[in-house]
Each structure stands twice: as C-alpha cells, then as structure tokens.
C-alpha cells in the first residue's frame, strides 16, 4: 500500500489558488509514515490547510487553481478519478467547522454517523456495528437519537469525528479538529489519534495548540509561506529557539521561560532548551 513513499507523499507540490500571486504551497516534498501522528504547525496562511486539502484531493478540485508536482495518498493519486474511487472511505477528513461537514439530510446522530458507510454500500450489520463503536469511542453514544442540528459545537465536532471514525480510515487529515472541544474533549481526541496511529493509520493534524499536540505527535512539520521549514521531533523543535523566531510556536511553559529569560537577562535556568511541560518546569526550577 504505502511503498517506499509512506502513507502520504508530496513531491515538489505547488498549489496556487485563483486570483492570488503567491502560491499556497511552494514546492513541498515530504513523506508521511503510517503509524505516526504528524503535526502541521504554521501561522495563518502558512499553508497547513492547503496541505491537507491537496492530500485529500480536494484542492484544486473543489477550490479552483492549479496544483503542480505529485501527491500520492495511500499509494493513489487523489486527483485521478480512479484514485479518488480507490480512496473513498479510506481518508478521514475533519475541519474546524463541524456544522459545514454534516450530511445535510440526517435526522439523528446515528444516521449522521451511518451516512458515509451507507453511501459506500456497506451491509447494514457492518454499518450498525461501526456506528455504535464510533459513537462509543467518541463518548457520544448517548446522543445517538438526537437531531444533529440541535447539538452544541463540541458535541457536533465529536459527532463529525465519529462519522469519519466509522469508516476506519487509513489516513487521517485534520484541520484544527479540537477547536470546538473543551479540555477533556481535547485529551480524548489525543488518545484517539494515538490509538489510531498505533493501529497503523497515518494521522496528519494541523493545530496551533502546542500543549495538546506535544503529547500526541511523533513528528512536527513547520510551514511558512507554503514551504516546510522545519521537520523533526516536536519536543526537540519546541525546545529550540528557531521555531519561536520563525512562527512563534511554543508550549505555554516554554513561552513563560522565554519571556522570563527576556526580562531577567542571561540566567542559565531560563536559557534554551526550554522546558515544555509543567512537569519539566518544576523539575528544572525547583
């Protein structure tokens, strides 16, 4: 399935939207491995959303514009109709706005989660068990008979993720999926992503929430002006100074250490590598 290229491979990918001079992606080459959580980080307009859209085959098909280079998702070209047919149901795509990802026809949460498997012609028994399992894993089984239109933002986001989970995707592409979730919801999502990766899925997630992602991600890609400018382990990149200077990326404790260091002058206890978690900070400063 993945070959030498991994679950998702970009080779010299350039994406340009209509009516803009600057490309959204500018020569991105990267290979994403199955079994890992890969975290995309970048300021607004850095190209994270475009990366995910191109990986899912949604850009430029739905956005307009031109895409150069090559994209292979699970070994298929998502731009090619045959590739898209082969990828149907194997990609889990989640954005920050849950309401716009609903089917538009489901009267209950159960129907919402069952919508995609039914479109793919799965047998009813398989749909029922996949739906029940997905609702249970997202902690929304009690909402099964509710109308999706009457859910809170956080509940809706869990339902949308459950509707993707029911498909058992091999490649997750998520854009700020925790934006509507509370702390417990974010922690639950992190556990789910780690479980999915442990079961062999490739997980790619764009997020600005360094505190949450530090615990989940195996690898971090930092994007700037449509290019991958840093690629490495999240704890290593976040503890260094370059990510802070380039994109302001940091956990809360590391930001605190940097700012305190800036105020206090050259104090060794406040110099890089910065502590990334509360536990690191306590260990270093106590």
């Amino acid at each position: 399935m993945n070959g030498a290229d991994g679950a998702l491979a970009f080779h010299g990918v350039t994406l340009r939207y209509p009516g803009t001079d600057t490309p959204a992606l500018a020569g991105v080459s990267v290979s994403i491995r199955a079994g890992e959580v890969t975290w995309l980080y970048g300021a607004l307009g850095a190209g994270c959303t475009s990366f995910l859209l191109a990986a899912a085959g949604l850009a430029p098909a739905h956005t307009g514009g031109e895409l150069g280079g090559s994209v292979r998702a699970l070994g298929f070209d998502p731009r090619d109709p045959a590739g898209r047919a082969a990828l149907a149901g194997r990609i889990g795509f989640v954005t920050a706005v849950p309401a716009s990802q609903l089917s538009g026809v489901a009267a209950t949460v159960r129907e919402e989660v069952a919508f995609a498997p039914a479109n793919l012609g799965w047998p009813v028994t398989r749909i029922e068990s996949a739906t029940a399992s997905a609702l249970g894993r997202l902690g929304v089984a009690h909402l099964a008979d509710r109308d999706p239109a009457h859910l809170s933002g956080g509940e809706l986001q869990r339902v949308v993720i459950a509707s993707m989970l029911a498909l058992g995707p091999a490649l997750w592409l998520m854009d700020e999926p925790a934006s509507a979730l509370d702390r417990a919801g974010r922690d639950g999502l992190v556990s789910l992503l780690v479980e999915e990766a442990a079961q062999g899925a490739a997980v790619v997630l764009a997020s600005e929430d360094a505190d949450t992602m530090l615990a989940a991600a195996d690898r971090m890609l930092v994007l700037e002006h449509g290019r991958v400018v840093l690629d490495g382990a999240p704890d290593v990149l976040l503890a260094g100074g370059e990510i802070w200077e380039r994109a302001g990326g940091s956990t809360t404790i590391a930001s605190l250490a940097r700012r305190a260091g800036g105020l206090a002058g050259p104090v060794p206890a406040l110099a890089a590598p910065y502590p990334l978690t509360v536990a690191d900070g306590v260990a270093r400063w106590s």
Binding site: T63, N119, G121
Partner: peptide, 25 residues
C-alpha cells in the same frame, strides 16, 4: 457559496459521489 463549497468537500469525502448503490438503513 461558502456553505456549498465546504459541504461539497464533506460529501466527496463521505462517499456521496461513490458509484455503488447506497445501503437502505
């Protein structure tokens, strides 16, 4: 237009364009 664009992507990912008969739940 915004809603139609976002919904179109969601429907594509969720297999509404799949060329298989849909299951009656």
């Amino acid at each position: 237009l915004t809603e139609a664009d976002e919904r179109a992507m969601a429907l594509e990912i969720r297999g509404l364009g799949a060329r298989v008969p849909r299951t009656a739940l």
